[in-house]
Design a protein around this nucleic acid. Sequence first.
DNA 1: AAAATAAGTCAAGACAATTGACTTAATAGG
DNA 2: CCTATTAAGTCAATTGTCTTGACTTATTTT
Lengths: 409, 409
Amino acid sequence: MNDMRLIRAKSGTNQEGTSAHNRRVMIDALRLNGQLSRAELARATALTKQTVSNIIEELERDGLVESLEAVRNGRGQPSTPYRLVPEGAFAIGLQIDRHVTRTIAVDLVGRVLARGEANLPAGGPATGVRTILELIEKTRRDLTAIAPQSEDRLVGLGAAMPGPFGIEADDDDTWMMAAWQNFPLLETLAAGTGLDVGLQNDAAAAATAERMVGAAHGVDHAICIYLGYGLGAGLILNGELYRGANGNAGEIGMILSLPRGASLDERTPLEHRASIASLCRLLDLDPADPELYAHIDAVAAGSDERVRRWLDAAVFELRAAVQALETIFDPQTVILCGGLPPGLARLLVEAMMPLLPSIADRRDRSLPRLQIGFTDPWAVAIGAAAEPISRTFDPRFSAILKTRVSAAL
Amino acid sequence: MNDMRLIRAKSGTNQEGTSAHNRRVMIDALRLNGQLSRAELARATALTKQTVSNIIEELERDGLVESLEAVRNGRGQPSTPYRLVPEGAFAIGLQIDRHVTRTIAVDLVGRVLARGEANLPAGGPATGVRTILELIEKTRRDLTAIAPQSEDRLVGLGAAMPGPFGIEADDDDTWMMAAWQNFPLLETLAAGTGLDVGLQNDAAAAATAERMVGAAHGVDHAICIYLGYGLGAGLILNGELYRGANGNAGEIGMILSLPRGASLDERTPLEHRASIASLCRLLDLDPADPELYAHIDAVAAGSDERVRRWLDAAVFELRAAVQALETIFDPQTVILCGGLPPGLARLLVEAMMPLLPSIADRRDRSLPRLQIGFTDPWAVAIGAAAEPISRTFDPRFSAILKTRVSAAL
DNA sequence: AAAATAAGTCAAGACAATTGACTTAATAGG
DNA sequence: CCTATTAAGTCAATTGTCTTGACTTATTTT
């Protein structure tokens, strides 16, 4: 007679959780500061010298950190700095976009070691999964060729694709994205690769990349506006990516806003005006064209009237979006990134200046209100690859807690 | 020769952190589920029966939990449920508003035990601090009269006032709020009361109240829109209040938006249309009038044309705000609360229906997209009082970490 | 050359969760 | 009615991890 009452509670923790956290804290500190001695680590983490020594020894045995030559810093015994071993861990990233899929292999410090790309037929998961699994396989082989130890040290596979997830299909779904969004991708990829798989949307992946190796490195409160085919935001809050209740946080392209000069209440999604998709529509470009990036770059370099029109509309929306996001999140900085050419990104950001006034106008700012981050079609794939590294090595609350088998009685 | 290089790192943890977390998890589980046996707690928290037994015993010794009569649940030894002892802890809340200051005393389960109110002269901290300290003193005495043990069990003082903090003074600052916002309130109150002091803005306090005893009880992802004299949002993310880099997250009233029908780019703060302040302006009411709440209630009950105009404008903004917040945060629910009469809140929410479409339109929803929370001038004070309870007893990442003396080398 | 300073190690100790056997108290079933 | 079964909860020993304080090593300052 077990009543199936659901008990809501958070998980407890134990010594393992403590140890796991402290190991992560060490790795995080080394990632952030480049190199540190045991004594410095002890001071920085509030742990004792002895504890740090034990953990560092263990990490060294595990091949995650290595010592450098001792340095004399004045009086006292010289200190031995430690740093991360790039080859200590590897991860694969997978980007599923509308017409293309990309893979990336990175190491512990976020260096890109291999890339792969393939066209994705417009048939959705039914036809695409095979292509994807083959591409991942190829990237793993490429990685093993460069770094033979990588197979043993692969910590996971990170997938990224446009969101939102778990929502009913939309209007014009040429590339079957809705089919992908509702497809059991994690399970399929886990079964097909034998790896631990994580899933993020485009913008979240871009933010993950910015946090590991980009403009948000070491920044605990940052908003990454991702301008790609659609528009999204990756939310870095308290040093972690925020996902929301259903993993759809940050889908700002779906905010309904009034177009500039609209007289009626005809709200339409933000990304109808501020996205590569809207630019393609204006320029009559085919988003499936593999040369799209180059085309856009070329047009943006010129002074096409249509580009100016697009910029006008996009800037109008993005200035408001930046002001709103600053007001809502009170971040240290806002980063504009995406799969658009750097030239166009610069144009955009320049046109957005001056920014609208907000609570971000503080005297004690150390970072600019708006920065340009990765502007590269590969940014999402890099972020996808960074996710397993972050999941495995970054200090986070969830990593301390015991994993619950079941909360039901 | 100590080079003052700043090392950035997170804190480590130790057994004390583990223990503290597990204690908090127990209390949280009991708060959430009312009463649980040791065996249920063990299952819910993924800890062992023995560990739970030890912790519960300790909490019982500390007077924080108590056992109830054993209940037979079929086969096996009857279980002994435990619940929180309301008198296990107390906290004082302080609200500093433009023309009035309020105090509240609550117990561990969030019941209000004492209240105090005083007018605040328009002179800012210079003249106000004394009034405030006296009011706190009076509330402490009132509390002690009701619960003699409270003085020993007072866990802290929570203060709440309109934000944003640390920003330069604004235009029409009749009540010297900017002076308050830049005043070292924490230090002054700590010195004046001998208690640990926390500070939140209005909206955050309202959200804290909703989370402890209101509509967000047990909800880990909720956005509380606080409509008071100004407009703000309290962000409950992953079960914790999010504060931003400078404690100003959620100040959505300062988002610049285009008024309905605006033809030019004349963006003005949202709260110019959606706030009690804007209603007062329309109705020609004096915000400093102590009877304001009653006046508004009376006017709202009638069918004043000016109220309809205000509703129109506010609804236009708030529908967009709800859609935007849903899209940005992907919360489980949005809660409208504030210092406005319940009747007006109902009018507002009814007029906001139907809500704009968003990613919150999911089949698997368990909570309404928009709910009404506390609509009471005391909500902020209650939330202020709830903050020390939350700080002391809720499981949170920061409670696990060691406190660092200094990160500088 | 001695004193001071700082990095890092050693070995014992403290603390908190875990383990597995045990006790207690109820119901189910023959 | 008696026995087997089930579940709650305890006991005592164990394990894992961090802490403590004394110690060693290596360098600079005086």
